[in-house]
Amino acid sequence: MKTHLYLLLLAAGISAAPQMSSMAELLTLLQQMCEAMTNDVQNLRIETPDNIDDVNCVSTIFEGTEQLRTNPAMKKFSVFFQNFERLKQSLPASLAKEGKCDTERRNATIFIEKLMMFIRKASKNARL
């Protein structure tokens, strides 16, 4: 129940972003990011939540996104990162006080795939 409430809040935050109003656009940018990955980025290891549905892993998702953003090869996806930062700021402060999140260091492609799953689930819950 708590996860569904969080995902509804997340979906509202994403859809309220002025320059990118749909989750489909976020997913498209993420797909392009995956396809454009160079070997340098693919070798990047990012702390990735084992369970993307775990509300305790919200900060891990944002930290991994920040790690991607700081990679020079990701500069052309700055619009995605700006909108994702707005989403982060729109979340309630109570979500910052999270519990334990089980993670594993994985390559950037796997992290992006998990991030796409996270956004898809938020999108489905927003349509309820």
Rank of each mutant, 00 (worst) to 15 (best):
E47S: 09
E47K: 12
P49M: 10
P49T: 11
N51S: 13
N51F: 12
N51C: 15
N51D: 15
I52R: 09
D54A: 02
D54I: 08
D54W: 01
V55L: 07
V55N: 04
V55G: 01
C57W: 13
C57K: 06
V58F: 05
V58Y: 10
S59V: 09
T60W: 01
T60P: 09
I61Q: 04
I61K: 05
F62P: 09
E63S: 09
E63Y: 05
G64E: 08
G64Y: 10
G64D: 09
T65R: 13
E66C: 13
E66N: 14
Q67Y: 07
Q67P: 03
Q67T: 12
Q67D: 03
L68E: 01
R69I: 02
R69L: 10
R69P: 08
R69N: 14
R69S: 09
N71A: 03
N71G: 00
N71C: 03
A73W: 02
A73N: 13
M74I: 07
K75P: 13
K76Y: 07
K76L: 04
K76F: 04
F77A: 05
F77G: 03
F77D: 06
S78L: 11
S78G: 14
S78Y: 13
V79G: 09
V79Q: 11
V79M: 12
F81H: 06
F81I: 04
Q82F: 01
Q82V: 10
N83G: 10
F84D: 09
E85A: 11
E85H: 08
R86W: 03
R86F: 08
R86P: 00
Q89D: 06
S90Y: 02
L91C: 01
L91K: 02
P92A: 04
A93N: 08
S94A: 02
A96M: 15
A96K: 14
E98N: 05
E98R: 07
E98G: 14
G99N: 08
K100P: 00
K100N: 11
K100S: 10
K100I: 09
K100L: 13
E104W: 07
R105Y: 15
R105L: 14
R106M: 13
N107F: 00
N107W: 02
N107Q: 00
N107R: 01
A108Y: 03
A108F: 04
A108E: 08
A108C: 06
T109W: 03
I110V: 12
F111E: 02
F111G: 02
F111K: 06
F111V: 00
F111C: 00
I112P: 02
I112Y: 15
I112H: 12
E113H: 15
E113W: 06
K114P: 05
K114I: 10
K114Q: 13
K114D: 04
